[in-house]
Amino acid sequence: MSKRIDAVDLNVYYGDFLAVEGVNINIEPRSVTAFIGPSGCGKTTFLRTINRMHEVLPGARVTGKLLVDGDDIYAAGVDPVTVRTQIGMVFQRPNPFPTMSIRENVLAGMRLNNKRMSRSDADDLVEKSLRGANLWNEVKDRLDRPGSGLSGGQQQRLCIARTIAVSPDVILMDEPCSALDPISTLAVEDLILELKEQYTVVIVTHNMQQAARVSDKTAFFNIAGVGKPGKLIEYDLTTNIFNNPQEKSTEDYVSGRFG
């Protein structure tokens, strides 16, 4: 588990509209990388290209390359569903399946991939995944109750458990704490730091303090104006981005002068 990600001259289009232009980035395995920048600058769009999730919108396409351990996930014959199994996504708002129990939510990805397993193997996977998401001790006595009955922070960690149950190599998180209270946010941030011991983690966040707390490297995206493509402006160690940025626009953003 845990793989390197390389984007090479990556452009993202929706139909004829160029949404993100010319991204070149190298993301190391077993690290946390944060994408920051103002709304509409392409950071979430680029995040979604890393597991081809953007393709759910009609007309979406890319040019350039996106390599995972050297393999181009956009090469001819590559199955997007397989890519999304290897590269999991945790969304902005917790989205447990409302009609499923906590246990069924954890196993949902395995079921969708038609993976058959014995009851005991399934029980072991549920426990392992919930422990991995720091949720086991809170829910072990109510696994058959609906996942939607958990608190917001617990639901988000349940979604993370569901993601890691399928043994991905990379975990993408799109503003995973934006809908959570400060205590739940801290729990998820602590979990992110633990996850990087096994996975490559990439998060989009509007919270500058969060990026500073959890990420090893930070990528700053920006946009020149309405209708213009988003661009990667600067990518460096998080300490450098926040304390010694090379681009004035990066400094202006992280210091709160715009955005």
Results as ranks from 00 to 15, higher is better:
K3R: 15
K3F: 05
N11G: 00
Y14R: 11
Y14A: 10
F17L: 10
A19C: 08
I25S: 07
P29A: 08
V32N: 04
V32C: 06
A34N: 05
F35S: 12
F35H: 12
F35A: 11
G37V: 02
P38C: 10
S39D: 14
G42C: 14
T44N: 08
R48V: 15
I50A: 09
N51S: 11
N51Q: 11
H54T: 03
E55I: 01
E55D: 11
E55K: 05
P58N: 11
A60I: 03
K65Q: 08
L66R: 04
D69K: 14
D71M: 14
I73Q: 00
Y74F: 07
A75F: 07
A76C: 04
A76F: 08
P80T: 05
T82H: 08
V83K: 03
I87S: 03
V90Y: 06
F91V: 02
R93W: 14
N95I: 07
F97T: 07
R103G: 04
R103M: 13
E104L: 04
M110A: 05
M110P: 00
K115D: 04
K115E: 08
R116H: 12
R116I: 04
S118Q: 15
S120L: 12
A122T: 01
D123F: 06
D124A: 10
L125M: 15
V126Y: 01
K128Q: 10
A133W: 01
A133L: 06
N134L: 12
N137H: 08
E138H: 11
K140E: 13
D141K: 12
R142F: 13
S151R: 09
Q156G: 07
L158D: 03
A165G: 06
V166S: 14
V166L: 13
E175Y: 12
S178C: 05
L180R: 03
L180D: 02
L191Q: 02
L191E: 03
L191M: 07
L193A: 13
L193S: 14
K196E: 10
E197W: 02
T200D: 05
V204A: 13
T205K: 02
M208N: 06
Q210C: 10
Q210G: 08
A212F: 13
R213D: 13
K217G: 06
T218S: 09
A219L: 15
N222M: 07
A224V: 09
G225K: 13
K228G: 02
G230E: 05
L232S: 10
E234S: 08
Y235L: 08
Y235W: 15
D236H: 15
D236E: 11
T238E: 11
T239R: 12
I241Y: 04
D252K: 12
V254L: 01
S255Q: 13
G256L: 14
G256P: 10
G259Y: 08
